[in-house]
Structure formats: structure tokens, C-alpha cells
């Protein structure tokens, strides 16, 4: 196998992996903050990307402004889901599985709405920066890929800093670790949960916007992204958002190697078989913590 091909697929693996990572991070953040396994995380990506497509090509907005609004739309959708549904279900002590059902339902509705309003066509966004190509280790790289890698890494590091150093971030973390303890020192646990959904929504939208110059967005792609995000998050340890980042990368790289080594038709089989093996060996995930309960 030549170096160029290997480098090329490794790069593709990292690119996809970072996208899975962002979706997984959003999923893990929401799960940690509310114990809701969010089966519509990929739909945040679809909505974010579609909003950018609409504003950019439909209304001719500047790209950066459209991107900002795309991210914002994810946050708003996240807040809406928490305020309109999750909050009441938690107040009425809904059983745990009902959240999965709820988010699957919301996901399907969004997918149907996208189909209804935008049809079956898929849409690509232009790459960030210029359309220049670069050669790295014999691999041809679009400038957008470099942006995607840089932005994903920055978002991941930024998220860590946000949780560890800002007051709101610490409160969100406290509310997720022990809601009763948090409320006892004046933290508005419900509000923190809304913030968590906003953060998760914005991260999901960011993932969608970053990947859409490479993989076109359509009404069906949300579920695929959710599955990859879940795999990344579970691989990383579902309650550790930063674990999901590593999980996503590992997933993307395994997938890319499966394509070079075997064939692209079997990539999912190989990837998920490997995932299962890793999960058997490390049930808490790569960075997961044993024995955490509550939240």
C-alpha cells in the first residue's frame, strides 16, 4: 500500500472522526447534564446545515453570518426541546426510556419537516476559506479540511475550558453531578439543563455545518450522524464529553482503515464489530469513569 493512499484515507478518517466527535460531545454533554440519551443529536446537524444553506444560497447572507445563525439555530432548537418537553417529563418523573422515545420522535418529525419543506435533494455548502488544495504527506487536502480539523479541536478544547473555568460551566457540571446539592447552594438546576441542551444543540449544528462542504446534507442523514455520534460517545464513556472526542477520532480512523484494508461496503460491519470488541474489553469506554450514578 502506498504512503499517499494511506495518508489520504487517514486524513479522511480524521475528518469524519472529528465530525463524529463533535456530535458525540454534544450527545455526551446532554446525557451528562440531563440523563437524556438524545436520539436526535444528528438532527441538530441537519437543522444547522440547512439554515446555513438557506441563508447563504436562498437569501445571499455573508457566509460567516449564515454560519453564526446556523449554530444559533441549533442552540435555540435545543432550548426549545428542553423547555417544551424534557422539563415537564422530568417534573412528572417520566420513566427513563420515555426520553429515548421522545427524542426519536422529535428526530423523525424534523426529518419529515425537512423532507416536506426542502424535498429530497441534498445540499452542499462551499468550503471554508479558499478552494486551494494542499499536499500533506502525498495526500491532497482541501483547505476546508484544515479548517474543519482546526475548528473541531478548538471547540473541544474550548468546551473543556468552559466546563472547568467559567462560572456557568462549573454550575452546569455541578448540577449534573448532584442536582440536589447544586440546588442547595443556589444553582438553578432547571436553567442549567436548558443551557446544556443549548450547548448540545449548538455543537450538533457546528458538526453539521463543518461536514456539509464534504458530505451533502439531506433529510435522511440525521439518523446516520446520530448513530456515529452515539458510537463515539459510548466509546469515549457516555458521561465524559471529552472522551467522546477521542471516541469519534478512533471511530473515524477505524472506519477509514476498514475502507482501505477491506472494502467500503463492509466498513460499518468492521467498524461496529471493532467497537463491540472495545466495549467488551472496556465497558466504561476509553475515558469513562466507573460507578458514577445520579445526575
Amino acid at each position: 500500500m502506498n504512503v499517499g493512499l494511506l495518508a489520504q484515507s487517514l486524513l479522511a478518517g480524521i475528518t469524519n472522526g472529528l465530525t463524529y466527535a463533535l456530535i458525540g460531545i454534544g450527545l455526551a454533554a446532554i446525557f451528562k447534564g440531563s440523563r437524556v440519551p438524545n436520539a436526535m443529536q444528528g438532527e441538530f446537524s441537519v437543522v444547522g446545515a440547512i439554515v446555513v444553506v438557506l441563508l447563504l444560497t436562498g437569501h445571499g447572507w455573508p457566509y460567516w453570518l449564515a454560519i453564526l445563525c446556523g449554530g444559533l439555530s441549533g442552540a435555540i432548537l435545543g432550548a426549545f426541546i428542553e423547555v417544551a418537553f424534557i422539563r415537564y417529563m422530568i417534573r412528572n418523573a417520566a420513566p427513563e426510556d420515555s426520553y429515548l422515545l421522545l427524542t426519536i420522535g422529535i428526530g423523525l418529525s424534523i426529518s419529515a419537516a425537512v423532507l416536506y419543506f426542502f424535498g429530497r435533494e441534498s445540499h452542499l455548502l462551499p468550503g471554508f476559506g479558499s478552494d486551494n488544495l494542499y499536499i500533506i504527506l502525498d495526500a491532497v487536502v482541501r483547505e476546508h479540511v484544515i479548517w474543519l480539523i482546526a475548528i473541531s479541536i478548538l471547540l473541544t478544547i474550548g468546551l473543556r475550558q468552559f466546563y472547568r473555568t467559567t462560572s456557568v460551566g462549573l454550575k452546569m457540571m455541578a448540577a449534573s453531578i448532584d442536582p440536589v446539592g447544586a440546588a442547595s447552594i443556589g444553582i438553578d438546576v432547571t436553567l442549567m439543563r436548558t443551557f446544556t441542551f443549548m450547548l448540545g444543540g449548538a455543537l450538533g449544528a457546528a458538526a453539521g455545518i463543518l461536514i456539509t462542504p464534504i458530505i451533502p446534507v439531506d433529510y435522511m442523514i440525521g439518523l446516520q450522524l446520530t448513530l456515529k455520534g452515539f458510537a463515539a460517545a459510548i466509546l469515549g464513556g457516555l458521561t465524559n464529553p471529552l472522551g467522546a472526542a477521542i471516541g469519534g477520532l478512533v471511530l473515524g480512523i477505524i472506519e477509514a482503515m476498514a475502507i482501505v484494508g477491506v472494502s467500503s461496503s463492509y466498513k460499518d460491519v468492521i467498524t461496529f464489530s471493532l467497537l463491540i470488541l472495545i466495549m467488551i474489553a472496556m465497558p466504561q469506554g476509553l475515558l469513562g469513569r466507573a460507578g458514577r450514578t445520579g445526575g
Binding site: D178, V180, G181
Partner: peptide
Amino acid sequence: VVLENRRLFGEM
């Protein structure tokens, strides 16, 4: 209040 079982944030 100092709650029963303290209710601190263990990983912080």
C-alpha cells in the same frame, strides 16, 4: 444547609 451525605461535587 449541610445535607445528609454532604452532596458535594465529587469529581470537582
